[in-house]
Amino acid sequence: MNALLIIALVVAMGATAYVLVRGVIAMANGKDVSGEIQQNYMQKRVMFQAIAIVIVILILIAAGAGK
Results as ranks from 00 to 15, higher is better:
32 D>L: 06
32 D>I: 04
8 A>F: 02
14 G>T: 11
41 Y>E: 05
37 I>N: 05
20 L>K: 04
34 S>I: 12
28 A>M: 13
37 I>H: 01
26 A>G: 11
13 M>N: 14
11 V>K: 04
36 E>L: 02
23 G>I: 05
21 V>Y: 00
28 A>F: 12
12 A>F: 04
41 Y>A: 03
40 N>I: 04
24 V>K: 02
19 V>G: 00
31 K>I: 04
35 G>K: 06
16 T>Y: 06
9 L>H: 08
21 V>I: 13
15 A>C: 11
18 Y>Q: 08
37 I>Q: 10
24 V>C: 05
12 A>W: 05
14 G>K: 07
32 D>H: 12
25 I>R: 12
22 R>I: 00
28 A>S: 15
35 G>Q: 09
22 R>Y: 00
18 Y>D: 06
16 T>P: 00
21 V>D: 00
35 G>S: 11
10 V>Q: 11
11 V>N: 00
33 V>A: 12
27 M>C: 10
31 K>N: 12
19 V>F: 12
32 D>R: 10
17 A>P: 01
37 I>Y: 01
26 A>H: 12
12 A>S: 14
41 Y>Q: 04
27 M>G: 13
33 V>G: 04
27 M>A: 15
18 Y>R: 09
13 M>Q: 14
42 M>Y: 10
27 M>E: 12
30 G>C: 04
9 L>Q: 09
16 T>F: 12
14 G>C: 11
16 T>S: 13
8 A>M: 03
31 K>H: 14
11 V>Q: 03
8 A>T: 05
18 Y>L: 14
15 A>H: 07
14 G>A: 14
21 V>N: 03
11 V>A: 01
8 A>N: 10
12 A>V: 01
17 A>Y: 02
41 Y>T: 01
25 I>L: 15
23 G>D: 08
25 I>H: 06
13 M>W: 13
